[in-house]
Design a protein around this nucleic acid. Sequence first.
DNA 1: GCCAACGTTGGC
DNA 2: GCCAACGTTGGC
Length: 152
Amino acid sequence: MRYWLLKSEGDCYSIDDLKKDKSTAWTGIRNYQARNYMRDDMKKGDMALFYHSNSKPNGIYGIAKITSNAHADETQFDAKDDHYDPKSSKLDPRWVCTDVGFVKKFTEPISLTEIKHDPHLEGMMVRVTGSRLSVQPVSEKHFNYIVNQLGQ
DNA sequence: GCCAACGTTGGC
DNA sequence: GCCAACGTTGGC
């Protein structure tokens, strides 16, 4: 079982949206490294931290769970969708997504500032400025610390 | 295969 | 809203 951090722009798809939807297909990932993580390593039953970027504050707003293995991201075939990819084909889909379910929203977000200053979280990928990866692996130690010690 | 130009991300 | 850093594209 693995742990992840999923980034979303807060005003694009927030933890509140996920709470309302209960479950959603995590579509729109158009970065190969992120895709490879989803396709190869992300499995049904994995857990994820839900991170808001471009928000006040930026940080971890709650917990989600991975509820399916990777499957084709349907938005890549839809010419009207922002994430349409004309170079992808149904026979050989370039982009995948997994399904993600709501678990919990923290009463207070754990801000990026807090994450950066907590010595327990040294080595977390999201701490590195300029890390644009929107699907990141998180160590079990970091995940448990955030969920059990910081999150409420 | 290199690398300049471009578009996007994301912290501030 | 700005802009630095990053990833991708495409000409050569």
